[in-house]
Design a protein around this nucleic acid. Structure first.
Lengths: 129, 129
DNA sequence: GCTAGTGTACTATCACTGTAGTACACAACA
DNA sequence: TGTTGTGTACTACAGTGATAGTACACTAGC
């Protein structure tokens, strides 16, 4: 599926899953009523423990992003896309601010930062999922 | 001094200190021969445990950024600025890449990302240290 | 010599992550 | 009616990060 995690990210694994599910919902990659991968399936795909995935899903459920269909799985909740789109910018803005603050602390020239952003942006764009 | 940490960053506190010292050295804010704040002093200023600062300094010492002056403190090592400048871009690039990748996953428009970067960049520039 | 301030090295403790394994109620399906 | 696959809830354990406290060797300065 569309998920991918990085153990060296700093962010907890379950938190990375939470973010990515939100982003997928915000971007319309999964729509209300659609099912997300099962706990065991996603755990196998990401090569992590099912408990870690379960924890992420529990978090998403408590935030109203996912809804349980008993004995069947978890589906994207009705109001979730609007909710996730609202959070999307803020989630990204916060991390972006940290990076730019660090760049400033290191006295990188603003133009050099822009070049760096542009370079990485095109690199990411070219990237195959 | 010039250091500031964010417990909610995700990055370990001692790691944030390591990065910031490197950035300060790379940017010339502290020069070879100059002393860094003492373990106890910086711990007090950042309101964290001295052990955490000590751990960061130990790391920096093992990487050759700082050098011990017995009974007196730690000074910036001779070749450190060149060494730190080399690492600076890569340290920032790695985090930047993560953010941009997330932004792409969430299907944010590249131009919207650019606007976001520009906005945060000017915000950071205006910021008083 | 004494005191205060250095870094360093311990031990102990706590919280958080993540893993491992087990168990259970439920729904879908052959 | 079984079987399989859901989510969920436990317990136990290991690793890491951070804190708390103590102790020691060293240097600078009075």
């Amino acid at each position: 599926m569309f998920f991918s995690i990085d153990p060296s990210d700093g962010l907890a694994l379950y938190d990375q899953i939470v973010r990515q599910v939100k982003f997928a919902v915000a971007g319309g990659a999964i729509r209300p009523g659609e099912m997300v991968p099962s706990v065991r399936e996603l755990a196998k795909e990401l090569a992590i423990n099912p408990n870690t995935v379960a924890r992420a899903y529990r978090e998403l459920q408590s935030q109203g992003v996912l809804a349980a269909v008993r004995g069947t799985g978890l589906e994207v909740a009705e109001g979730a896309p609007r909710h996730c789109r609202g959070q999307r910018i803020e989630l990204i803005r916060k991390r972006l601010r940290q990076v730019l603050w660090e760049a400033k602390q290191s006295r990188l020239d603003p133009d050099e930062i822009r070049r760096l952003v542009e370079h990485e942006l095109t690199a990411v764009e070219k990237q195959k999922v």
